[in-house]
Simulated assay, not measured.
Amino acid sequence: MKHSRLVFLLAVLAAFRVLAQQGAADLPPASAEAKIARGLMLEHEGRRFLAPCRHRSYLNVEDVSDGGKVLAALKAFGLAPGRSLYVELLAVERGGSLQVSGINFVHTAARCLSEIGDEAGWRAVGLQSDWEAVAGAGRLRVERIGKPVLQFEYGAIEHEGERYRIAAPGASLNLAQGLCRLADGSALTGWQATLVLEEGDTLQGCAWER
């Protein structure tokens, strides 16, 4: 057990040296605006690390959110020593440390999930996983169990504070910032979704940015 811990810590230190030398070119930039950092989050001896997707490296994670709400939410969702999570966090990378300020998407799968194409701006899933909506490039696609697929075209996304509205003739997808958890416990997101269809359905779900 001691040997495995030593190997892990040496790997982390080596990764920090590589990042310092190479400038971490493909990782979230050190800018004033947070970006979405994707990877596997793990906890070891009271410290948290992110292993970015497609990188054999680790970043030390520092929670800079109000009251440490990001780390608290991850722990409540299941992050613990020996149990990793796939995470998409709002973060800024500085000097080998990842400063996280918000949650976009978290999944219990301890592996990097495949990404949707660049045209997808938002994705929403029903609380019971009974519907799904994907919005991007002016098109909103809605799939529901046992019903025909619906497709709509929309213009500019409306934005006010921490709320977004994707409105199209026949449907609107409303997004409000706030933690949301699927009923089966498989995913946690940073956005709550309400899908309103002209035919009469109002559906609740979780959403995240792509």
Rank of each mutant, 00 (worst) to 15 (best):
R163T: 11
P52T: 00
L188T: 14
A135Y: 04
A110N: 08
D63W: 10
E45M: 09
S114T: 11
G82D: 01
A14C: 08
E45S: 08
A176D: 08
L59V: 01
G136M: 02
I36C: 03
D184Q: 00
Y164T: 03
S101M: 06
G82Y: 04
L98P: 05
R210D: 15
C112M: 05
R83D: 03
V61G: 05
R139G: 01
R56C: 05
R123A: 07
G46K: 04
R94Q: 13
L6W: 12
A80I: 04
R17W: 10
Y86C: 03
L9A: 10
G68F: 11
E33C: 02
V92R: 09
I166K: 03
F152R: 02
A14H: 07
K69F: 14
V142N: 00
A20L: 14
E62D: 13
H55D: 12
I103H: 06
L6E: 13
V106T: 12
A14Q: 10
A137R: 06
E198T: 10
I36Y: 00
A24Y: 14
H44M: 12
Q192D: 04
T202A: 14
L150R: 04
L89Y: 03
L13V: 07
R56I: 10
K69R: 10
R165G: 09
A133F: 01
R181I: 11
G178V: 10
W131R: 07
Q204R: 15
E198C: 11
T194K: 12
A167S: 15
V18E: 15
L188D: 09
K35Q: 13
V125H: 11
T108I: 14
P28S: 04
G121E: 12
V70G: 02
L59R: 04
T189I: 08
A183K: 13
R54S: 11
A24E: 09
W122A: 00
C180H: 09
L50Q: 01
N174L: 12
A15S: 12
A135D: 01
V106L: 06
V149G: 02
G155F: 04
A91P: 00
L173T: 02
F16T: 10
L10F: 14
A24I: 09
Y86L: 04
R139N: 06
F105V: 12
S101D: 13
A187H: 12
L203M: 09
V12M: 03
E132Y: 10
S4G: 06
C112L: 05
